[in-house]
Design a protein around this nucleic acid. Structure first.
Length: 102
DNA sequence: GCCATGGCTAGTA
DNA sequence: GCCATGGCTAGTA
């Protein structure tokens, strides 16, 4: 596993409950702001292995990218259970975005 | 080739 | 909408 992947996993692991972060934010925090799509791959391949809070990652618009039939519905449910609120357009309210600090 | 993204543009009201 | 990204999940040689 390369350094970027390790950083991404560590960052995702530290997302607080009730907060969300975008793929691009995670990539930037890990040192490569153009690797947003790789973050999605790492989530798919490593979420179970490292018990990652995969549901706290959404796209830059605050919208769930995972298809509804492939876990998207579950993702929204998990977030709502943590107190995250969605607008009518399906986007997470801005106040629920984590800025990367602890 | 694929894709759980993101940034920018164009067209409309 | 469109297309540049970029690492490996695919499939073939």
């Amino acid at each position: 596993m390369n350094e970027f992947t390790e950083k991404v996993i560590r960052i995702i692991s530290s997302i607080p409950e009730g907060k969300v972060v975008s793929y691009g934010q995670i990539a930037a925090l890990a040192g490569n702001n153009r690797a947003a799509r790789q973050v999605s791959w790492i989530l798919r391949s490593s979420s179970g292995k490292y018990n990652l809070p995969w549901h706290r990652v959404v796209n830059g618009k605050g919208i769930i990218s995972l298809p509804e039939h492939d876990g998207g519905n579950l993702q929204r449910e998990l977030l709502e259970n943590e107190g995250v609120e969605f607008r009518l357009n399906g986007a997470v309210s801005r106040e629920f975005f984590w800025n990367g600090s602890t």
